[in-house]
Amino acid sequence: MQAKGRVFKYGDNVDTDVIIPARYLNSSDPAELATHCMEDIDKEFVDKVNKGDIIVANKNFGCGSSREHAPIAIKASGVSCVIAETFARIFYRNAINIGLPIIECPEAAKAISAGDEVEIDFDSGEIRDLTTGDSFRGQAFPEFMQKIIANEGLVQWINNGRP
């Protein structure tokens, strides 16, 4: 599986309140949530994002509220992967459970700039910055989590008899 897209770059501690503000949590419709994705940190995100684009951030991405609406909004806005130095633990679980690809890679998080064209090979864990020519290796998921991802999330993994 591969992803390729343009990078939206953010800093440390991007919290789930700015990813999807609580004033929109009276909806749980992915398409509607996507229309407000990143609104309180980047008003232009919704207009600029294209299918396949990639979010790159520094440490503790997705901290704060456990709202699954945050990874749902990111996924529904067309983002193909989030790369960060580290993820807050509930966001990390939620992303795996709903099948939003995420990669922890401090080197890539530091080096990649906004607007860069980036390509990711999920099988090898390789992240290539096509704009700069740099290449990085993301941290591989433990085997257990790979199984959940391979089954397209927790629900399907359980439905398939927890293979």
Partner: peptide, 29 residues
């Protein structure tokens, strides 16, 4: 609990932690 402040019950010597809605669904099932 599908709420990040589920960690509150640690005050009573329980292990409790926040998760998302899909974990909650799997937990209920």
């Amino acid at each position: 609990g599908a709420d990040s402040h589920t960690c509150t019950y640690g005050a009573l010597g329980a292990f409790s932690t926040g998760v998302g809605s899909t974990d909650m669904a799997a937990g209920m099932a």
